[in-house]
């Protein structure tokens, strides 16, 4: 069943379309990656899917109903969100941040109760950061904060989690920590994940882990290709998408498992950019 469906979606700023006629559907239990150069509109598309922005044309369906007619607390019970770069303000305790994930279930003039607390604690345990629960989240490292954001999304108890470049600004190890966590969530919690990313290898990582993975390549106001990483992330497509020469390599780690990776070789010199990084060829 399609959890999220986009039909002919268009959005743009100041009358200039950013993308047009976007169509796709996300099935339950899959990992859907959005890949594309800076400024191609990944975050904007996610904002439309989360109901923050209303598409200029077309519609986005959440469980078959138009998202622009669903109230925020109803959306928040279906779709949780892990931001690209959470802007920290007040030094809240980690547990209090995760508790905020329960807002959609708590009345306007109410406060979290015992059950919400138990769910927040469970989310912390699932992500493996129970030991951080009394720390001030402003004093955590970038990777730890991102895990807190994942825990907060889990506390929302939604079937879908939308992640906008969840590994941006993370170091070598913490990037992998988040990726492993995502795989674990899809595999063990049966979650559906929609993730914008800058790294083609993320898509391969999920596929290598045996998850049902699809990737949409976003460029020139639409999807260049949509399919499994092995099908879509070809040397040719990446050249068209990023103007980068690449090689896809395959490395057997086991008798019945091989790891695919993409290696960037060089940029092609046929590229011209405007300030937003959009191709103006």
């Amino acid at each position: 069943m399609a959890l999220i469906e986009a039909r002919g979606v268009e959005f743009g700023y100041n009358g200039i379309p950013l993308f047009q006629n976007i169509n796709f559907s996300i099935e339950s239990g899959e990992l859907f990656c959005l890949l594309g150069p800076n400024g191609c509109g990944k975050t904007t598309l996610l904002d439309c899917i989360l109901g923050h922005l209303k598409p200029l044309k077309g519609e986005i369906l959440l469980n078959d109903s138009n998202i622009s007619r669903i109230r925020p607390e109803q959306i928040a019970r279906q779709v949780a969100y892990v931001p690209q770069n959470h802007e920290k303000t007040f030094p809240y305790r980690v547990l209090d941040v995760v508790l905020m994930g329960r807002a959609a279930y708590i009345g306007m003039f109410d406060r979290p109760g015992e059950e919400d607390l138990a769910i927040a604690e469970e989310a912390l345990a699932t992500v493996g950061i129970t030991h951080l629960k009394d720390r001030r989240y402003t004093q955590l490292s970038g990777g730890e904060v991102q895990l807190v954001m994942v825990a907060r999304a889990l506390a929302q108890r939604t079937p879908v989690i939308v992640m906008d470049e969840p590994t941006a600004h993370l170091d070598f190890k913490h990037e992998l920590v988040i990726m492993e966590k995502v795989v674990e969530l899809v595999r063990e919690q049966g979650l559906t994940i929609l993730m914008a990313t800058h790294f083609p290898n993320h898509c391969f990582y999920f596929e290598n882990s045996g998850l049902i993975t699809r990737v949409a390549l976003m460029s020139n106001m639409n999807f260049l290709a949509l399919g499994s990483p092995s099908e879509v992330l070809s040397e040719e497509n990446l050249k068209q998408l990023y103007y980068v020469n690449t090689r896809v390599v395959s490395f057997p780690v086991d008798v019945n498992q091989e790891i695919k990776q993409i290696i960037a070789i060089s940029t092609t010199d046929s590229r011209h950019e405007d300030k937003q990084g959009r191709s103006v060829l």
Binding site: L50, G51, H52, P72, A76, R77, H86, A103, R152, Q156
Partner: peptide, 17 residues
Amino acid sequence: RINVMSMGDKEAQSLGI
């Protein structure tokens, strides 16, 4: 809810308020 609002409009909305 002031806690939730202090996360910013976008996050507050995606948290359901």
